[in-house]
Simulated assay, not measured.
Amino acid sequence: MMMSMWSFVEPLLEEAFFPACAPTYNGGRLPNSVEQLTQATLLRNDYSMWNDWFAQAGLPGQPEPCRGVLYQDASQQLQATVDGQGIGLVRRSLAMQEILSGNLVRLFEVDVVSSLQYWFVCPEPLHNSYRVRVLRQWLQEEVRLFRSNFESAGA
């Protein structure tokens, strides 16, 4: 991330991807091995991270899925996953609420860390102002709560 020397920059939250699906996907018969996952309907997106995930899960060389809809919006892919259209490689930050509510099931404990991250950025002269401090404290508390939720959910 390129910022001028006049900017205050602080990382807030890292992003990771993992496979998830609706509990009703495939009549409730969910893949229980990485090998079974290769035979499932894998939902695609512009991030093209299935290959990286399979390598992390011990199946290097597994190609990116090349059939089906290519979702260019992570929220649309997430909704298709919730709707049971296939297995999505979902962004943790977007999928967490669906996992906590039971609309999605995380399939494996393997994450692919993404280069996507959330940052707090503001002009350096303002970072100690009351309004910015309050906003920053609120964001930090939300991130702590989010991390606590995904740790307790096993996601």
Rank of each mutant, 00 (worst) to 15 (best):
A80T: 07
Q36W: 09
L13V: 07
P63C: 10
A74K: 00
L94Y: 07
C66A: 14
Q79C: 06
V132Q: 10
I99G: 02
A20L: 10
S101M: 04
P31T: 06
W119G: 00
M2H: 09
G86Y: 00
A153W: 02
G154R: 12
G28Q: 10
F146W: 12
L100Y: 02
L37Y: 06
S129P: 01
G61W: 09
N45C: 08
G58E: 12
E35G: 08
I87Q: 01
L43M: 11
Q117V: 05
P31S: 02
W50A: 02
Y71W: 13
Q56V: 13
Q117Y: 01
G102H: 05
Q62H: 09
W119M: 00
V121H: 14
Q76E: 15
Y118R: 11
F54Q: 02
A74I: 04
V105Y: 00
Q85R: 13
A95R: 00
R67T: 11
N32G: 11
Q56R: 15
C21N: 08
L104R: 00
V113M: 04
A80M: 11
S101R: 07
F108C: 06
L30S: 03
W138V: 07
G102W: 07
W119Y: 05
G88E: 01
A55G: 04
Q97L: 07
A55I: 07
A55N: 08
R91Q: 03
F18Y: 15
R29P: 02
Q62M: 01
R136T: 01
P19Y: 09
R92W: 00
Q137L: 07
A55L: 08
C21W: 04
T24F: 08
R91F: 04
T41C: 13
L30V: 03
P60I: 10
T41K: 15
